[in-house]
Design a protein around this nucleic acid. Structure first.
Lengths: 140, 140
DNA sequence: GTCTCTGCAAATCGTTTGCAATGCT
DNA sequence: AGCATTGCAAACGATTTGCAGAGAC
């Protein structure tokens, strides 16, 4: 598995340092759309010298190389999403602050029609509200 | 027209100070989804004592009272949108940095299906790319 | 040995807040 | 007079950057 991360990073032109490997593995193992601080907090126990600067630099590198998306969702911190094959939306629960993936996409034609003649590079769809779990907990 | 702004603000429980009126009028006259800094720069000539703090405080007040939406779109600055009746998407041109309205919405049923049992409070849809004008200019 | 990566600390940028001065009723 | 609003300046929180030391090839 570690070997795979190595190869994967190299394939994307990223030199696989220990920090970069562990950050990438964390992203893949914890699909919670973590903030930079989440990543730092999770890994600093294991890599005591880790600095937030490295986390930020690494995430920017990953984003530049197309390994992760930065998802602009309400709230002051950026959240990162390992680049998924299938386009999907995000739902942020304003109660527990978790960000969920939502399998939802536009019909191509609708986009074509609304944005004809424009070059579309990225798109993202965000919902906010209260998730099932929080609704249930609050009703109890 | 000025009278109308007065009444409109009062109807939303906002005391219509000169600054607030001018900021609201600016938002309505310039539907470019301005940043706080855009608003400040545009109005400080006319209101020399205006401070950014007042712009931020006013935008937060407007947002709390439902007069404007804050649109979370890639980029480090918040952008404001006078609350529109019809839901619509946004398209940000990475070339000229303008943010356009896009008349596009999900079929209700698709949302229901994907997010059943959740309480949905807000949603927003953002595209980034290059707009018609910039494409034309760059090809020339 | 060179070139890259890390990580501290300081800088930066957007935004918020404390508070005294001002304005409105 | 009494309460709300303004606007300066300082505080803040997330992110970026300069740079010296550590590490990789």
């Amino acid at each position: 598995m570690i070997k795979n991360t190595d190869i994967f990073l190299r394939e994307h032109g990223i030199k696989p340092s220990y920090q970069r490997k562990r950050i990438y593995e964390y992203l893949n193992e914890h699909r919670i759309h973590p903030t930079a601080n989440d990543i730092y907090t999770a890994l600093v126990g294991e890599i005591p010298t880790l600095s937030k600067a490295t986390v930020y630099n690494t995430m920017n590198l990953f984003a530049r190389c197309g390994l992760v998306d930065v998802i602009p969702i309400e709230g002051h911190e950026a959240r990162f999403d390992p680049h998924p094959e299938a386009p999907h939306a995000h739902f942020r629960c304003t109660c527990c602050q978790k960000v969920y993936d939502v399998p939802l996409s536009f019909p191509e034609e609708a986009i074509e029609e609304a944005l004809s003649q424009c070059q579309i590079d990225t798109f993202n769809i965000n919902f906010t509200g209260v998730c099932k779990e929080c609704l249930a907990r609050n009703e109890a």
